[in-house]
Design a protein around this nucleic acid. Structure first.
Lengths: 146, 146
DNA sequence: CACTTTCGTTGGTTGCGCCAACATTGGCGC
DNA sequence: GCGCCAATGTTGGCGCAACCAACGAAAGTG
């Protein structure tokens, strides 16, 4: 009943994008239950790991467009998870920093996204999960640099 | 310079969605150069493999929403690649069928998408490509049935 | 015969990834 | 110092893919 054309089923591009659809659904459902979305987690993660920076560096680190960073920061700031302050060294820049509430928020979202990984990978044993990550990582590294 | 937070880089969900971004870009660029998009190829592939059917079966087979099938069929029909005819057995249905031009179109798009696979997988040797496809296929099969 | 279901269709919404344009500010050549 | 270009934040827009609600017409079911 669930017929998928061979032409599609056999193509890596199809597998990746369909898998991504499921991933996106899992992530979006889990995050939206918390009133968050992917962009928020990405920015919080980047701030937590690399510390306060300009929005443009945030954009690079979380692989987003700078205009989308603006919107996401607006939303995060409205909840008090991040703060914007003018950079004294360069008045063009906003220094975006994580608040205590933001750190806490990140830990919440971290739990959520960890649960999603489990859901996602449940059919694979540990060694195959690692193999999959390794292969995807190789492809990604290649296409990021070029 | 290209710093990605560990929290992201280590997560399969991140790898999949970022990989999907690159895939989507490759596919969209290649198809749009031909004036097509992913939905068109999916529908043509389903029609070619399973023959003329109702739009709702097409939607299932190409994993699309039925409302999106409407739009895609409109576009394909405008170019003469598919035809809508009323189903004599059930007047609620449209029988959608592939024209000769449509078969030809599919072969064009097939070449395009085959080129994308090569691009995409170029950093991996043959056996690792197979391993990757196998693993993704297993995940996909699991999440489709549940 | 009502009642419900199916199908096509219309008209939205959302998330994510983009791009163009503009004002402000900074840096650099002169 | 002045003029020009680059960087930054911001606004407003676009496209694709996925999805949803509602409707009329037609079919099926009691």
């Amino acid at each position: 009943m669930d017929e998928t054309p061979e032409r599609l089923a056999g193509k890596p591009s199809w597998l990746i994008s369909q898998l991504s659809v499921h991933v996106h659904r899992l992530v979006a459902d889990a995050f939206s239950a918390e009133g968050a979305r992917g962009y928020h987690y990405r920015i919080l993660a980047a701030l937590d790991e690399f510390g306060a920076t300009s929005q443009i560096r945030l954009a690079q680190r979380s692989n987003m467009d700078r205009s989308d960073v603006v919107a996401a920061i607006n939303e995060l700031a409205a909840h008090g998870f991040v703060e914007r302050s003018p950079d004294p060294d360069d008045r063009r820049r906003n220094l975006v920093s994580l608040t205590d509430a933001g750190t806490q928020r990140l830990e919440e979202l971290e739990k959520v996204i960890e649960g999603v990984q489990e859901d996602l990978l449940s059919p694979l044993p540990q060694d195959e999960r690692a193999a999959l990550s390794r292969l995807m990582g190789r492809l990604l590294a290649h296409h990021r640099t070029r």
